[in-house]
Write a protein that binds this DNA or RNA. Structure first.
Length: 938
RNA sequence: GGGCGUUUAGCUCAGCUGGUUCAGAGCGUCUGCCUUACAAGCAGAAUGUCAGCGGUUCAAAUCCGUUAACGCCCACCA
């Protein structure tokens, strides 16, 4: 074995080994495959009944967008999922993890369109729908392959044969069925609605796809003239160009300034339309601006609501590209700032402009195109949320779906509580095209078809929905059927992910995978899509299958850089998981990702630039060294042990490697004679570790999981046990050491799969692969707090000696003597002390006389003397003793103060009081002994 | 405006049921070591008004209130 763990070849080796052995497949698949060959079952060590009765554990991956490669956030989330999946697989559960990717409608189309323009100076309209979609599929294939490669490099143990894509046939079928059912139930409707219009992409975007920017604008106040020429109402606006679409001016019903105008008629400048002055207490805030508001229902959400209340006409003044349309009269064709300036200039010329003020306002921008959002009136499809949302809320309220950390259920409930209808149409070409055909008259020929449903819309046209088959233009004689050009919001298909991936295409759990694996066990995801995705998955699962899609939702922290900023391309602070895998290894990456998963909402990772040996410049973080170093530590512990195992041929190895029962269940008495203290101790520690590791994973405490193993391996196993034993490996200690390491491989496998599998092969070549063999169970009979305490007491003597060595720079190779004054018989700990502290002669007794020229220290079980003739420095020793005394005195004072408090003695539990009394005695003892030592120093 | 989170060593963070096993870990810093598993290592050392204020309690980093700073989500801004 090399002195260092080299991850590179090992990782690819195990990736192919697991793949070849179909280790990522659920046990039930293997059973089915070997139905005809009973021998195969035996060979596979898979018991048919065990599999059939096994609990199931299933996860569907949050499908990464095919817009680009995976980042560190994905690495983190998929590490978490893989830990859970590997852990449950080792528990013997019928375990399945379904991978896949998301078509990410707007984002992907935008990326491809952008590239199209950069490379060929073409827009999508130059290509046409079919060709553009073809190009996007090509992009998708490229990135899907890249993403899949990344996930594999990470070690994600997904069943790659079940990989899905949100636009593939299975998913499309699920989408069609869902849409059809909702349509038939009347839960999908169409109507003119005000939407957020992205004028660049020419599509509606959801509220959640908008971010707001504060910009410096102006506040224009102008005169709104009365139609009869008798005066005007002053009106202020930040968007003067929308005057052209005004259909009313609103004032507060109780505003004395404007009461008299209510019901009168105004004249819209430029277009000379007559509009009413209306009273509306909801829209108008008397204190703000002029206290009067121009109402443009087609271009402002509040005005839109007002328009509905007062049944006002809605006049659209914009074209799809954001330029002013024919309703804008003389201004038609102008757009953006130019349009605004022109209108302002016009108002000024007409003498209507009263004043211009600076005004800060926030403007909605599109996430995707970064251009200003225009509220825009257009035909859209919606899902009615009222009832769906209520049911989905119930699932969390009654605990059917549980969030971890629990606080996130509030996000979910608050958002669903608003019950806003969901706009599901997008004016894009990349996505699931809405399965609706428009026609002018009732298609009676289709009336009795169960796979077709239609109805007449508000505007008189007929809307035909087809379940499976696309309809042709002349499907119905005498009518022309035109397919709706829109596609569905990406989240519509994402919301089906838990069951579309399992082949749902109609009512009930009618396919084998759904029977076996739905609902899933857990969803691990980021907090910013709790509403967009998590809530909608619950809704659609309940709707389609009458069941929640998952029992648990784990919300992982967001990875930020050292300054607390999100990682992004534009900031240049993003870390590429593949760079980290290359430099530190996948296990190191995984270990660190898990270790930062606390209950916190963020996890900071200081990022620094670095140039690799091959000249490549990467972003990295020193944090990953922890993972790499830890892996190396374990590697070297194994390297030490290897000669004693001798490839499984020694008697020692034979007991452990042939049949594998010892894993995690050390025999109660693996000894012929009484076990040594350190042996009982490490067995107690090992079994304690098994318990706490199990508890950590079960409760999604991933940081705790890694830290428990880190300290067990590094401190307990290596720094202590191995250091005690290294000089003389006996059959017993070899057994224990082997057992401990064997168990650690199992405990650590979920987070460090490659290293553990490799070490297992080297050390225990005859044993089963770590990925498949059982997760350790603790033998609680071996957990002994008393022994652990005793060991600590002995170890503190070692620490005292080491401290003295440090103080006087005594080289490790130089042995020194040690005298311990104690009432106890520490003969059984002799080797611990002599080996770890480098002791030549060790004496102990209750009546030991203090030697001359020695350093001394008080320990739990007595007093330590270390003769240092010729080395001892009086001043150093005196100073140290005085410091010890001072510390003990301070502590003593606080203890005495506490105990002299009557209320404390009266109210505190006796055990606490006893504890405090004990401490007083201890401190007094320390002071006394150290004082004595100080005196003898002179 | 509504909701949530964070504030503990120079840095990144633990500390879940209040009590010196609670003031911790890793990194960094300092000292000494190439001690035949590991220098990606070993042994030692230094470092903190647990953000401020107030309260509950015999007892508060921990519970409650409040202030401040930073951050996230939602809503709104004529």
């Amino acid at each position: 074995m090399d002195t260092r763990y080299n991850h590179k070849d090992i990782e690819s080796k195990w990736l192919s080994a697991w793949q070849a052995a179909k280790d990522f497949k659920p046990a039930s698949d293997k059973l089915a495959a070997s139905d005809n060959a009973a021998a195969a079952i035996a060979a596979d060590n898979t018991n048919a009944d065990t599999v059939k009765n096994a609990e199931r554990f299933s996860v569907v991956i949050p499908p990464p967008n095919v817009t680009g490669a995976l980042h560190l956030g994905h690495a983190l989330n998929n590490t978490i999922q893989d830990i859970l999946v590997r852990y449950n697989r080792k528990l013997g559960h019928n375990t399945l993890w379904i991978p896949g990717t998301d078509h990410a409608g707007i984002a992907t189309q935008a990326v491809v369109e952008k590239r199209l323009f950069q490379d060929e100076k073409k827009t999508r309209h130059d290509l046409g729908r079919e060709e553009l979609v073809k190009r996007i599929w090509k992009w998708k294939d490229e990135y899907e392959a890249r993403i899949t490669g990344q996930l594999k490099s990470l070690g994600a143990s997904c069943d790659w044969d079940r990989q899905r894509f949100t636009l593939d046939e299975k998913c499309a079928s699920a989408v069609r069925h869902t849409f059809f059912n909702l349509f038939k139930k009347g839960l999908i409707y169409r109507g003119k609605r005000l939407v957020n219009w992205d004028t660049h992409l020419r599509t509606a975007v959801a509220d959640d796809e908008i971010y707001y920017e504060t910009v410096k604008g102006h506040f224009w106040t102008f005169k709104y003239p009365l139609a009869d020429g008798s005066g005007y109402i002053p009106v202020a606006t930040t968007r003067p160009e929308t005057i052209l679409g005004d259909t009313a001016v609103a004032v507060h019903p109780e505003d004395d300034r404007y009461k008299k105008f209510i019901g009168k008629t105004l004249l819209v400048p430029f277009v000379n339309r007559e509009i009413p002055v209306i009273a509306d207490g909801i829209l108008v805030d008397r204190e703000f601006g002029t206290g009067s508001v121009k109402v443009t229902p087609a271009h402002d959400p509040n005005d839109y609501a007002t328009g509905l209340r007062h049944k006002l006409p809605m006049i659209n003044i914009l074209n799809e590209d954001g330029s002013l349309g024919e309703n804008a009269g003389e201004f038609a064709g102008l757009r953006g700032e130019k349009a605004r300036a022109a209108v302002v200039e016009g108002l000024e010329k007409l003498g209507l402009l009263l004043k211009v003020e600076d005004h800060e306002m926030s403007v909605g921008k599109s996430d995707r195109s970064k251009t200003t959002i225009e509220p825009y009136l257009s035909d859209q499809w919606f899902v009615k949320m009222e009832d769906l949302a209520t049911r989905a809320m119930l699932a969390v309220e009654n605990g059917e779906v549980k969030f971890t950390p629990a606080r996130y259920s509030k996000n979910y409930l608050n958002w669903l509580g608003e019950k806003r209808d969901w706009c599901i149409s997008r004016q894009l070409w990349w996505g699931h095209q809405i399965p609706i055909w428009h026609t002018t008259a009732e298609p009676t020929a289709l009336a009795n078809r169960t796979d077709i449903h239609y109805f007449q819309a508000e505007n008189g046209e007929w809307l035909v929905c087809s379940l499976e088959r696309d309809l042709s233009e002349n499907e119905v004689e005498g009518l022309t059927l035109t397919r709706d050009p829109d596609v569905l919001d990406t989240w519509f298909s994402s919301a089906l992910w838990t069951h579309s991936t399992m082949g749902w295409h109609g009512a009930g759990k009618d396919t084998s995978d759904l029977q076996k694996f739905f609902p899933t066990s857990i969803l691990s995801t980021a907090r910013d899509i709790i509403s967009l995705w998590v809530a909608r998955m619950v809704i659609f699962s309940q709707e389609n299958l009458g069941e929640v899609p998952f029992k648990n939702v784990y919300i992982h922290p967001t990875v930020l850089d050292g300054q607390g900023r999100r990682m992004s391309k534009s900031l240049g602070n993003g870390v590429d998981p593949l760079d980290i895998i290359e430099k530190y290894g996948a296990d190191a990456l995984r270990f660190v990702m898990a270790s930062i998963c606390t209950e916190n909402q963020d996890a900071r990772l200081p990022v620094k630039k670095e140039t690799l040996e091959n000249g490549k410049e990467i972003n990295t973080s020193e944090k990953f060294e922890i993972g790499r170093n830890f892996g190396n530590k374990l590697w070297n512990a194994a390297r030490f042990l290897q000669p004693f195992l001798d490839g499984g041929s020694t008697p020692l190895a034979a007991t452990l490697c042939a049949a594998t029962p010892p894993a995690g269940t050390p025999r109660n008495a693996p000894f012929d004679s009484e076990p040594a203290l350190e042996d009982s101790w490490i067995l107690s520690r090992l079994n304690t570790t098994i318990l706490s590791v199990t508890e950590s994973i079960e409760n999604y405490r991933f940081s705790e999981y890694t830290s428990i193993l880190y300290h067990f391996v590094w401190d307990d196993l290596c720094s202590r046990y191995l250091e005690i034993k290294k000089g003389s490996i006996s059959s017993e200690s070899g057994t224990i050491l082997t057992q401990a390491l064997y168990t650690v491989l199992d405990l650590l496998h979920p987070v460090m799969p490659f290293l553990t599998e490799e070490l297992n092969e080297i050390l225990f070549p005859n044993s089963e692969r770590v990925i498949l063999r059982a997760f350790p169970k603790a033998n609680t009979a071996l957990i002994n707090p008393q022994i652990e305490k005793q060991f600590e007491a002995v170890f503190s003597i070692v620490e005292v000696v080491r401290s003295v060595r440090g103080r006087y720079s005594i080289l490790p190779a130089k042995k020194i003597d040690l005298h311990l004054k104690t009432e106890l018989n520490v003969e059984d700990s002799r080797n611990i002390i002599t080996d770890l502290a480098g002791i030549e002669k060790f004496e102990f007794s209750a009546t030991l006389a203090k030697p001359n020229f020695c350093a001394s220290a008080v320990v739990g079980i007595g007093e330590v003397f270390i003769p240092l003739e010729g080395i001892l420095d009086k001043a150093t020793e005196t100073a140290r003793l005085e410091k010890e005394i001072e510390k003990a005195k301070q502590f003593l004072v606080s203890l005495e103060k506490k105990l002299s408090n009557e209320n404390f003695v009266k109210n505190a539990p006796p055990s606490v009081i006893d504890g405090e009394r004990q401490k007083i005695a201890t401190q007094k003892d320390i002071i006394e002994k150290n004082l004595q030592a100080l005196k003898e120093m002179e």
